[in-house]
Amino acid sequence: MASSRPKNAPFLFPTFNSSVLPDPSRFFSHDLLSAPLPTNSFFQNFTLKNGDQAEYFHPYIIKSSESSISISYPSLSHNSAFIYEAFNADITISGSDEPDQHSRKTHLISSFSDLGVTLDFPSSNLRFFLVRGSPFVTCSVSSGNSSIKISTIHAVLSFTGNSSSTKYTAKLNNNQTWLIYASSPINLVNDGGSSINCGGGFSGIIRIAVLPDSNPDFESILDRFSCCYPISGDADFTKPFALEYKWEK
């Protein structure tokens, strides 16, 4: 039987509604829907069910929820049958307690690459640049009226900041130490429990990183690169017998 498709026209796969997997397009920005969406990608869990499944981004496990993401620096559990990294919400970054009721609460994927994905939260003016292999989780706050809250499931044993209010150190009772960097002064205050609140609005970049093994020798390295952040990354196979990773900053 002759095909009704015009000559030289690209083949389009027929539309199919799965009874197992929901339509992932609702988690992608409109600008990305004009091209095929990726399958079996490293950020696939952000598009399944409600988009709130944890996903592994070396060295963190990251979970998205309404107007926030949670970061886990996992420990490795293993036995003769399996190797497993459990998710614990060591650090959660969220927006205002009263987000815009007319904006979507779940995340929106605004861009992706071989090594990175960008999550937008329109209701709280937050954008997260999640790049595999980066020791930092980077958050862009686009409105000066935005209120930022950082919380943890652990107790905060100590919380200190530098004289310019652009770097803070949080020591938790699970032996983890987290460093918080800001592109401009930000007034972060620990409530005496497990929450760190921003006094007043903030607009700019916030970067959070765990201090490996709470070893102060690594802190100077994180300090050095805290101001330069990647927003995406690609795997380059253009050279013979070579694989090169390239990050965009």
Score class of each variant (00 low, 15 high):
Ile109Asp: 02
Ser158Asn: 05
Cys228Met: 11
Val210Pro: 00
Leu119Asp: 04
Gly200Tyr: 05
Ile180Gln: 01
Asn88Leu: 15
Leu188His: 03
Leu157Cys: 09
Tyr229Ile: 15
Leu108Trp: 00
Asn187Lys: 15
Tyr181Glu: 13
Thr152Gly: 06
Asn197Phe: 14
Ser195Leu: 15
Pro135Thr: 14
Cys227Phe: 12
Cys198Val: 05
Gly192Ala: 05
Val141Lys: 09
Gly133Tyr: 05
Asn88Met: 12
Gly116Met: 08
Phe112Ile: 06
Ile91Lys: 01
Ser158Asp: 07
Ser111Tyr: 13
Phe112Met: 04
Lys105Arg: 13
Ser194Thr: 07
Leu108Glu: 07
Arg104Trp: 02
Ile150Val: 02
Ser165Arg: 07
Asn162Lys: 10
Ser113His: 03
Phe202Ala: 03
Ala155Met: 13
Ile91Val: 07
Val189Cys: 06
Arg132Val: 15
Glu219Cys: 15
Asp97Arg: 14
Pro212Met: 05
Arg127Trp: 06
Ser163Thr: 01
Gly204Trp: 00
Thr118Arg: 09
Pro99Trp: 07
Arg132Ile: 14
Phe159Met: 09
Asp97His: 15
Val210Cys: 14
Gly116Ser: 04
Asn162Met: 07
Phe202Gly: 02
Ser146Arg: 02
Leu222Val: 11
Ser183Arg: 02
Phe128Ser: 00
Val131Met: 08
Ala155Gln: 12
Ser184Phe: 00
Gly199Glu: 13
Thr166Leu: 04
Thr106Trp: 15
Asp100His: 14
Ile91Gly: 02
Ser147Ala: 13
Asp120Asn: 06
Glu219Arg: 11
Ser194Asn: 09
Gly161Leu: 00
Val117Asp: 07
Ile109Cys: 04
Ser163Glu: 06
His102Phe: 11
Gly144Pro: 09
Leu130Phe: 06
Ile205Phe: 01
Ser123Gly: 10
Leu157Ala: 15
Asp120Glu: 06
Asn190Phe: 03
Ile91His: 01
Leu119Phe: 01
Gly204Gln: 00
Gly192Asn: 04
Asn190Pro: 03
Ser151Val: 04
Ile93Met: 01
Ile208Pro: 01
Val189Ala: 06
His102Ser: 11
Leu126Trp: 02
Ser140Glu: 12
Thr152Phe: 01
Ile221Trp: 06
Val156Thr: 05
